[in-house]
């Protein structure tokens, strides 16, 4: 019962945050909406029994990505602009989104929806997770670190003043 209440509250917050991101004209408020959404999604991760991923979500998204986005908006001056309306692209977007949603629900209705099964304490523990990361997923893990290194080098190269 408590769980359901918390779930709906957090889900509502995430959804409102997402709507704010997409439909608010002011970029700072939009980014704040996204930050609220990421934090709420982090709480959902905690409720899905992987608490450390929820916390990492907060560190990575709310703590780093959103802050950098805010930083750029503030340092370069916010420009107000809402979503486009009335163009062909917009109409197609909404149409495609609607079709996509309908398709998803068609699949969802056909499939078998059950309550979450009980899991043991060790399921989302950081030990189990770390074990998986360095044994079965060792190569992707290393590749991810390479990717981050590449991204770092790329960011440094990009932000040098090369074009006036």
């Amino acid at each position: 019962m408590t769980f359901a209440v918390v779930f709906f509250a957090v889900a509502f917050l995430a959804f409102i945050g997402a709507l704010t991101l997409v439909f608010h004209r002011h970029p700072v408020i939009a980014v704040l909406g996204m930050a609220a959404a990421t934090v709420s999604i982090g709480v959902l991760y905690v409720m899905l029994h992987v608490p450390f991923l929820g916390l990492f979500q907060m560190i990575v998204y709310a703590g780093a990505v959103m802050v950098i986005a805010l930083y750029v908006i503030m340092a370069l001056g916010p420009e107000e602009s809402g979503p486009q309306v009335g163009t062909v692209q917009t109409v197609l977007t909404y149409l495609a989104s609607l079709l996509f949603l309908l398709h998803l629900y068609r699949v969802l209705i056909k499939s078998e929806i059950g309550p979450m099964p009980a899991v043991d304490e060790a399921f989302g523990s950081i030990q189990a997770f770390g074990g998986a990361l360095v044994s079965r997923y060792a190569v992707p893990f290393e590749l991810a670190s390479l990717l981050l290194l590449g991204a770092m080098v790329g960011a440094v190269v990009l932000s040098r003043r090369q074009w006036q």
């Binding site: 959804f15 997402a18 709507l19 991101l21 997409v22 602009s81 979503p83 486009q84 692209q89 917009t90 977007t93 909404y94 495609a96 989104s97 996509f100």
Partner: peptide, 9 residues
Amino acid sequence: VGLIGALTR
């Protein structure tokens, strides 16, 4: 919602 945002903003 994210899709709409990515395509219309």
